[in-house]
Design a protein around this nucleic acid. Structure first.
Lengths: 346, 346
DNA sequence: TTGTAAGCGTTATCAT
DNA sequence: ATGATAACGCTTACAA
């Protein structure tokens, strides 16, 4: 690969002139410009960005640290990041922590991963990225981001608690609210819920959304109508009976898998989802539209989360900061109304 | 961020000494080493990699060009790449072409994307990556890789045809063979197939595997027993009747979605998959294990494809080249035997 | 054991 | 309009 020096020599001009031509700076005569451009094409010259970056002290690159690429939310979030990067002409340095594979399910309680994260930040810093996006595998409090970083950081799909590090998260309260309001609008008054794990932020927010929707519908909130699962299909299956016994005509499951479990149990009981009992899920996983009947659910705005996170970080870099709500950016879910929530018969 | 010069000054030593200490080279006195290391820690110094890379002319980074991150195969492939990179201490520069979103379904017939690809290779070259992995969204002939690249390239999940650019692909023939052999071993002699699109490499290889398995089982190959779908659930549904009329006791669908369609039709007919008719899929998509009954299928070795691709490219860089079969590396599928293939009654 | 200095491929300042 | 040259932060002969 030729260098700018060789181009200069081949053209009998100085490197400064070649540099000016490449970067459309200064003023150069038309004749020399054409001559140099021709040689550049012929010799297939591309400027060495690492040299350029050293000199200009900007790399136009941002680091993306993913907790685990293979978790369902991540690809879409990263896709959103790459879309914004493409528009803004930034490059991405990708780090995949593979936390699930290394530490299993509750890696985030394992202290070993804190040190790993610290090291990765350091490496990215050494590579001179201009900002870092940390992508969590599921929403929770992310308190392992070094606070004294010389470059901006934002966390996508997780809260930071810190006022200094912006986070981009799902507008879960509104999502659940809208979904349950829809169920109410179909005439249901006895709406059971199969929640996720109690300590999950998703669970707490979605429960709040549920409560708001009930309130607006003038429906008494009965704490006994909410059961807790563990996000797995089996736990949806198991909690269904409890809710049915309490007279629920509709069941709001906090994810699609548990809704699938509810479908299973309903079928066993000779009941039909979307006919005898209304069922709604959350997340809009791939299987949701293949269930019978297709499951009404809330799609997570994953792509937009990534897009926003990137917008925020590049906004900080270019001083065109985007507005935040107390350090957080909330992104709205997209309702997927399908056939599993029947209208209740009068 | 301090530079090596500042560290040197703060320690009253030369930059060479500091450099030697950082890189564990040359010989330095214990006293100075400790003093310098202490200052490095105190001043929170990290070497600037872009300067280092400029000097040493290696970046220990490889470029990964993904046709579209959001396609189901990609995250696992990239996960495999990152795993190997982590072991080998290489970094990843990620480019997401977003081809599906830009050009819809048959983007690869659209000539515009060739120019895009060329440009991305050029950019990566400028960034001084040491190798490039091109990750296709589905297996097919990839003939758009520039041939005269100064760095090694490999394509993952696609064939190159060129002897110069290695490709890593699924051992589809064996996968289909093993799956169909299993069906045969369960006593089936009339095995229909719902293939994918005719021009797809996946379709052709899996058909060959099917034929081999029949041959080994001493079963006549009846071309009328193979129907062609378009990979979508609906086409599985539609082709089921044809096969049933021909007396098939088992149906091999070339992907899980079409197998889902077959389930749907069977249910309508009052038949039970895994009882009245055996059904097998391919790919092991997320929904496969949630079907009723859980679908027997072949898992694609996506993670291994990425891992291998990365191994090959770093192998070339380190001159420890890995062995290839005519420029290709074939990776084996993993059978997922579940409950959809019943034993035929005597 | 430690220091000096050249050089990696650029950009940018200042002359000419 | 063009050219010399210093500088970016580092590594690496080579010298001391």
């Amino acid at each position: 690969m030729p260098t700018i020096k060789e181009i200069a020599k081949a053209c009998n001009v100085s490197v400064a002139t070649v540099s000016n031509i490449i970067n459309h700076k200064g003023s150069v005569g038309d004749a020399t410009r054409e001559r140099v451009e021709k040689v550049i094409r012929e010799m297939n010259y591309t400027p060495n960005y690492v040299a350029k970056n050293l000199k200009t002290k900007n790399t136009r690159s941002i680091g993306v640290i993913a907790e685990d690429m293979t978790v369902f939310a991540l690809p879409d979030i990263i896709d959103g990041i790459t879309e914004y990067c493409e528009e803004a002409d930034y490059q991405i340095l990708l780090v995949n922590l593979r936390l699930y594979k290394k530490f299993q399910d509750n890696y985030y309680r394992d202290n070993r991963h804190k040190e790993i994260v610290r090291q990765e930040f350091q490496k990215l810093l050494a590579k001179q990225v201009e900002g870092i996006i940390y992508v969590a595998a599921h929403e929770r409090l992310i308190d392992i981001i070094p606070e004294d970083l010389p470059i901006p950081t934002v966390v996508a799909y997780g809260f930071t608690g810190s006022g200094k590090i912006p986070s981009v998260v799902v507008k879960d309260i509104k999502g659940a609210h809208d979904l349950v309001s829809y169920i109410v609008s179909r005439g249901h008054r006895k709406i059971g819920v199969i929640a996720g794990k109690k300590e999950s932020i998703h669970t707490q927010s979605r429960l709040e959304g549920y409560q708001k929707a009930l309130f607006e519908g003038g429906i008494l909130y009965d704490p006994d109508m909410v059961t807790y699962g563990d996000w797995d299909r089996q736990s949806g299956y198991e909690n269904t009976d409890i809710l049915l016994e309490k007279g629920a005509t509709a069941i709001f499951c906090m994810n699609d898998f548990m809704a699938g479990g509810t479908y299973d149990r309903l079928e066993e009981l000779g009941l039909h989802a979307g006919k005898d009992v209304a069922v709604a899920g959350y997340d809009n996983r791939e299987m949701a539209c293949y269930e019978k009947p297709p499951l009404t659910t809330m799609a997570l705005p994953l792509h937009d989360i990534g897009y926003k996170a990137c917008q925020i970080i590049i906004g900080i870099l270019t001083k065109e900061e985007v507005e935040l709500d107390n350090g957080n950016c909330f992104v709205e879910c997209i309702p997927c109304i399908r056939e599993s929530v029947n209208a209740v018969e009068a």
